[in-house]
Design a protein around this nucleic acid. Sequence first.
RNA 1: GCCGCUAUCGUCUAGGGGACUAGGACGCCGGAUUCUCAGUCCGGAAACCGGGGUUCGAAUCCCCGUAGCGGUACCA
Length: 463
Amino acid sequence: METCAPINMPSDNSRLRFAPSPTGALHIGGARTALYNWLAARHDGGELVLRIEDTDRERSTEENVAQILDAMRWLELDWDVGPVSQAERADRHAEALRRLLDSGHAYRDHATGKEVEAWKAEHGAGRGYRGTPTEDPTAAIRLRVPGEGETVVHDLIRGPVAFPNASYDDFVIARADGSVLYNFAVAVDDAEMGITEVVRGDDHLSNTPKQLLVLEALGQEPPRYAHLPLLHGPDGKKLSKRHGAASVQELRAAGYLPAAVRNYLALLGWGTDDDTTLMSTEELVRRFRVADVGKSAAIFDEKKLRWLNGRFMREMPLDEYTAAVARHLGREADERLRAACGIAQEKAQTLEEVWALIRFLFEPPVSDEKAWGKVMKEGTGPVLEAVAEALEPVEPFEPARIEAALAPLLDRFGLKPGKLYQPIRVAITGTSISPGIFESLAALGRERSLERIRAAAERLPPA
RNA sequence: GCCGCUAUCGUCUAGGGGACUAGGACGCCGGAUUCUCAGUCCGGAAACCGGGGUUCGAAUCCCCGUAGCGGUACCA
């Protein structure tokens, strides 16, 4: 019979960890793992430990650690303990190693990789290597793996997965110099740090039996495991630079909002049963359950992220929007920028796209010859002169008044709206894409608008 | 090679023996909004990897293929 803990008990019993290795920037897959751990921890009031898996001293760097922390902060994923450097726990690892050596669960063996290969060639494929113990203190240390039986990973997502022990080598847990290896360090740390749930990438599933074996040898209770399906690029291959924004800092540079990225990443491998797509972070926390995560690998599709980001952008209060744009552009969030954001908000899908829409308010018109050639046809000069004249007395210089002042020109020149408004747009912005024309004129102000319209008219042949 | 995992529209997914004429979202295509672009609204095309079982009935359960992916380091 199973018993349930009272649900209103402060659940300080769950403890998760996100444990990246600082061998590069945090990419999207790592970010999703971090997010899922964070959501799982926040969902039931558990704790999140950030542990830096830096036992590979060759590839781990300070810069990468800094980059990971920076990415976590940008994503607004906080942690309760750490960052803890795994390398700095070397004495704990050494102690565990000592115990295993003393109890006979581990032994020294100086077989090289080639010797292991030779052993396998002799003993048949599918047989894990079993070494010969030596007293030589400079030999590497291997864990003694049972020759038979199986080790079962009770995965929260996949259910029980059994691995035959015989297929595993007596794997090396510490190098000749005494430094420990990943599968050993992880098992020891997870146990000693009281981790109750390990949520990580699928690539670790086959490693889990090794960690379970270490834990068993140590007499430690294992945590519960959940292995997330991997993320791939649009071509179905492993995510890489070629796939566009692959790291968290690239996502930021591309102008995505942290909240949108969290929403999108949450949906990559996990979904709700009622088809909800747009979710605030609070809702994500409330609804997320590790056990509901899917089993198959997902492909990162930037198009959907863009759409989602656009939705978040449009729903932001103007002040918040202006602040985000200012931060992204490295500008002051002043009144001028706020006004510019006001007319551009509904049109941009990323922060990066905002500048192209509002640039004309801060700098002289760009020179887009193609747009000019397409729009500034014969006879446009006089039209623009008339536009300037019509705009001159508009007071106050507001969108509705401007529209009212310009509308009569349509009949007077017998023009379709596009033939009147596009030239004005090109005149004041230099290009053919901008926020609404009346709003744009109003934001630019009468003086500058007239100046630009007249300057454009002068470039055109007179009537 | 050996050990594992996975398989629904192009993509993310819902579905867990009968409610499936397989639902939603992105993207795509068409239309509307007679200022561009975007947005918004309406409509459309688009999938159960293959083969065997089990069952009255299978997208759903089982087996075998196939494909993709992961692990197999004195990397993490």
